[in-house]
C-alpha cells in the first residue's frame, strides 16, 4: 500500500506492506538513528515522535502513521538550518549522558516530548518522562541531569 509520511519535515510517499512497522520502514528508508532493541515496546530504543508525542515505532504500524508527521533523532538538530544541536542533544553531550549511545536517540526523543509539554519538570517528572527508555550503561543519573539543564536552557531562550 501507499502511505504518506512527513519525516523530519519532508513529505514522502512510500510503499509499505500493510503489516510493516514504522520502525522497519524508517530504518529501511535510511533513518538508522531509530534503533532496534526489542521490537516489543519494552526498551524505547526505537522511540520517535508521532505528530508531537513519543511512541515506540516498533509498535506502530506504518499504515497507522499514514498522513502523520514523524520526527526521528536525525530531525532534531539544525531544523533552523544552522545545523545546531537541539538543546537536549547538546546537554546529553555536555553532561556525560551518552555512553554507548544506542539508547540515546530514543531517550532524547522522549525528553524532547517531555520538555515540549512540561517546560519545567521536576526530577520525578523527568524520570517518568524517560521511564520507557532503558539504558544499561549509565544508571540514568547523567541523563536526568542533562534533561534538567536542557529544560533550563530552553526556558531561558523562550523568555528572550
Amino acid at each position: 500500500m501507499k502511505i504518506e509520511l512527513i519525516v523530519n519535515g519532508k513529505q514522502q510517499e512510500l510503499d509499505s506492506a500493510p503489516g510493516e512497522t514504522l520502525l522497519h520502514l524508517l530504518r529501511r528508508i535510511g533513518y538508522k538513528g531509530v534503533k532496534k532493541g526489542c521490537e516489543s515496546g519494552d526498551c524505547g530504543a526505537c522511540a520517535v515522535l508521532l505528530d508531537d508525542r513519543v511512541v515506540n515505532s516498533c509498535l506502530v504500524l506504518a499504515a497507522k502513521a499514514d498522513g502523520h508527521r514523524v520526527t526521528t533523532v536525525e530531525g532534531l538538530a539544525g531544523q533552523d538550518k544552522t545545523g545546531e544541536l537541539h538543546p537536549v542533544q547538546e546537554a546529553f553531550l555536555e553532561h556525560g549522558a551518552v555512553q554507548c549511545g544506542y539508547c540515546s536517540p530514543g531517550m532524547i526523543i522522549a525528553a524532547v516530548d517531555l520538555l515540549a509539554h512540561n517546560p519545567n519538570p521536576s526530577d520525578q517528572e523527568i524520570k517518568e518522562g524517560i521511564s520507557g527508555n532503558l539504558c544499561r550503561c549509565t544508571g540514568y543519573v547523567k541523563q536526568i541531569e542533562a534533561i534538567r539543564i536542557a529544560a533550563e536552557k530552553m526556558r531561558k531562550s523562550a523568555d528572550v
Partner: peptide, 12 residues
C-alpha cells in the same frame, strides 16, 4: 495512569 507503562506506550 502515571503508573501505567511509560510515555511511549501511553501515547499509543
Amino acid at each position: 495512569l502515571h503508573q501505567v507503562g511509560a510515555p511511549p506506550l501511553r501515547n499509543l
